[in-house]
Write a protein that binds this DNA or RNA. Sequence first.
RNA 1: GCACCCGUAGCUCAGCUGGAUAGAGCGUUUGAUUCCUAAUCAAGAGGCCGCUGGUUCGAGUCCAGCCGGGUGCACCA
Length: 583
Amino acid sequence: MNPYAYIREQVIAIITGLAEDGVLPAGMDFSNLAVEAPRDPDHGDVATNAALVLTKQAKMKPRDIATPLAERLGALPDVTAAEIAGPGFINLRLSEDFWRARLMDVLGQGVNYGDSQMAAGEKIIVEYVSANPTGPLHIGHVRGAVYGDALAALLSKVGYDVCKEYYINDAGSQVDVLARSVHLRYREALGETIDAIPEGMYPGDYLVPVGEALAARDGDKWRDLDEADWLVPLRRFAVDAMMDLIRDDLALLGIEQSVFFSEETLHLDGGIDRAMAALKAQDLIYTGVLEPPKGKTPDDWEPRPQTLFKASQFGDDVDRPLQKSDGAWTYFAADIAYHYDKTQRGYSQMVDVWGADHGGYIKRMKAAVRAMSGEQASLDVRLCQMVRLLRGGDVVQMSKRSGTFITLRELVDEVGADVVRFMMLTRKNDAPLDFDFDMAMEQSKDNPVFYVQYAHARIHSVLRRVADELPDLNLDLNSLKGANLSRLTDSAEMDLIKQMATWPRAVEIAAQAREPHRIAFYLNELASGFHVLWNKGNAEPNLRFIMEQDREVTLARIALIQGVALVLASGLSLVGVTPVERM
RNA sequence: GCACCCGUAGCUCAGCUGGAUAGAGCGUUUGAUUCCUAAUCAAGAGGCCGCUGGUUCGAGUCCAGCCGGGUGCACCA
């Protein structure tokens, strides 16, 4: 149960009752009515702003609303105190048994605790990574990959039917360059000496095995042909090889997308034509000449008629070209077709995860989605800001040209997938992030991953120990559900239960905001709550988890920390981090 | 020149979509280890929430305008 949602229902029921009794006007709008935890715990367990938000509608003073409301709230069985505070807040204290019942929720639902029906099976598509298939993934891709994957998991948790998708840019000129680079490596594999990789080709060693594989499969079949004869088949071969590489890279982070959508298919099977026809049918395409960009005009600027999409009708700054001067479709046209395809597949909610350098592209893409779906579909673009690598306090400079960029594989090899995933979620996605190698390697509370994992491992350490010391005590979940939780009375114990009780709400808020980093922050706080209780046991031996002379209290405390372990484990798996049991 | 993102403690950042006396970690000062993992915990100091107006019972949060930082700006992907 989500205690805040539950109390909110009670508040609304009471207000409705008061309206029936003529104390308050009927038919008021409750959309702004909030029930949440007050910042200051001294103000109670939950607080509601009901009297404040209704004051205008009811044409009554906040306190005149709050007084009868608080009176009836105070009479609820779960409420031990209801007081009016400040400008008209009502602060409620809930009974300890109410909170203890929340621990039962956790034990009863296990890792499913916190699942929500917020989205009730709605379809949503999350597209992320979508790196060009021209080489292995590097550090710049990692953040979007982790963010997108964690977001997808979070959306599933609240009931969405999520499709995780990768858009393969396999139709542009960069894959021609890839094919030529592979042809070069192929000739090399057949025994030719290649001095230096020419300017404008991909120099990376990762293409050496691709050339070798091609030679092994096809022999010298392609060696002496004209480029026109090998470009298309080699492009396909090379892209497939790169996608295998990329899938392997993603697997290192535990990321597995279900659909890999090829841009090329849109060109081949008429997908672009269909999308363009849909726009044309609404008279949103025309031929025109764009103004030169303000500020710095490109040197080779010349006015030329182009096929344009009326993006400005849908909130974009200017209309956008769909065809290049040579008549070929622009990337934007293909992108429109790709999103059109998503709508045709039944997705009216789309999330795209992009790098911050694509920020200027958002308006036109959202405009296109709105236009071609007749305002039925919406696109949400989440930008991930840059990641700076720090080592020894210095920024690690990276440049593709000098070959000093760090690959995803190198990063995972050095610090491990768990650390990479968690660290990438310690900032909200639209804030720049510093990834500090020294902190990532640190095995202390400086490292947030270890801090949370340590709490989980510590709990399992206790569980092992109690099994050892009290072997006849039954610790399975059913026995724990029978524990006498009224033996949990210490403030640190109750605080921990209250923290667990906020998990369902934390999940929903994070999903609504599409901010999985909130999960990482929640886990840090829950881990902290556990460490506090642990240390309290150090100072006061009667607060330890294992009390050999008092099996009843031991069982209750084991139930408590088992609950914490369950929430930690489900939160960690939500962000894709292993809940280790031993460290 | 325009668009988007950011500006909160010495540093790095949260702040639950408008709530009460603005929080955490690092760093700093002080303290806790015969004890279930001290890989941890407790306490103190530290603030013009970039600036100025506006909206209202109430603004770090919303709006406008400035200032400062980042990203991007026909046909490339």
